[in-house]
Simulated assay, not measured.
Amino acid sequence: MDISAHDERDPNPWLALYLDDSIPINKKTKSALMRDNASKSARYLLPFIQIWSKVTMFFIHIFKFFFPKIFNSSKLLHRILAWGLRRFVSPDANLLIFRHFHVGTEILQFIAGNIEGVNIVGSPLKPKDFEAVKDDLFLKHDLNLYNFVINLNRQLREKEITIAPPKKQLKLEMITEDQFDHIEFPNKWTNILDLRSAIELFTPFYQLFLTSNDFVRASNSLQLDETIAIYSAQILGTPGHLGLVNNKHPMVPETTYSAAYRLVLHGLAAETLHEILVNIKLNKNLDSVISPKS
């Protein structure tokens, strides 16, 4: 964003947040997010799309109550998602969506790799093109998260292990300082949708083509942000980054009608935690982290 365009009589709120470094986040991600917030799509289309999304979800909810097994097709859903992302979503929004899978995978690998006595074989998701979306990418992301929590805690109970800072040095080889230059996203005249508009548009399709269990589980998984953040805090020995988590209290689920907004917060929570781990790996801001004893 161009600071030379700053007008003290009409300051740009997104420029202010772009320049502010109080919240740790990848620079390319931050730039994309601020441009996305300032886009015409977010200004003019989002309010109408939000209304359409909520109304549509209400009628789909009623339809699925009477006909729960009609239209259940994850394969068809993900083909629609891949087509929509390629044709209508802006490059900035696509970058934020694709990065999320990479960041989320590395965070789970960090947790699993820094708890002694635990062995979890996950299913890493690092999509590099739109074809990868067709392989049930979004559904697998939710399944991975729940399976990770279940398998981790089963081993913790069976082996009577407590999550704590590792006795040896933190393992950070799985954390990459990725600026995401290896994917070029389409930028045609139709690629205009901002991140929140795209999510609001796709959510009713998610609700329609997934089973009720899959859709509700996907919505509730967002509140596991707090759970993952707590695991990380126990490993790092500091709770500082917990203040950056907004999706909380997974034992008290939110309504699915707020899933789209909470999904954006979920992405932000993952990005901030990942950037904290990147900074630790690069020996930045280590004064705010209690380093494990070597």
Rank of each mutant, 00 (worst) to 15 (best):
D225C: 11
S288C: 00
D7R: 07
Y231K: 04
L210F: 15
H241I: 07
P68M: 09
I3C: 00
T29G: 07
L242D: 02
E158D: 15
V133N: 01
M251R: 12
T29Q: 13
F63Q: 06
Q169G: 05
V216M: 14
I280A: 02
E200I: 04
S53K: 03
L273W: 12
K293P: 00
L46G: 01
L286G: 04
T255D: 14
P124N: 04
E177T: 06
D135H: 13
N187L: 09
Q50T: 11
T162I: 08
A82N: 03
I3M: 06
I97M: 08
F205M: 13
I23P: 03
D181H: 10
F67R: 14
A270N: 14
R43Y: 14
N247D: 03
H61P: 03
A259D: 04
I97G: 01
I97N: 03
K30S: 02
N94A: 00
L224K: 14
H6V: 01
F202V: 06
A112R: 02
H266V: 03
H241M: 13
L193Q: 05
W52G: 06
L96F: 05
H241E: 10
L195W: 07
A82S: 15
N144F: 10
N153R: 15
I49F: 14
F66V: 12
S232R: 12
I163Y: 14
V252S: 11
N147A: 06
P47R: 12
I290F: 08
S232L: 13
I115W: 04
A38T: 02
V278Y: 09
R196F: 13
H266G: 03
L236E: 04
W14S: 02
K171I: 09
M174E: 08
E131Y: 09
S39H: 09
K293L: 10
E8H: 11
Q234T: 01
L224S: 08
R9L: 09
Y146G: 02
H274Y: 11
S22P: 02
K168W: 05
S74Q: 11
H6S: 01
D225P: 01
S197T: 07
T105L: 01
Q169S: 10
V289E: 05
K140H: 13
R157F: 10
N147V: 07
P204I: 08
R9Q: 08
A198R: 02
F63H: 09
P13S: 03
A112L: 01
L152F: 07
Y44I: 08
M174I: 06
P186V: 03
P166A: 06
N187D: 13
Q155T: 01
V133H: 04
M251T: 14
W52S: 08
A132N: 10
L17D: 11
P250T: 10
M174R: 06
R154G: 10
P91M: 05
L156H: 03
K293E: 07
F215A: 02
N94V: 02
N72W: 09
T105Q: 00
N283S: 07
P13M: 06
N279C: 00
F88N: 06
T211C: 04
A260G: 03
D135N: 12
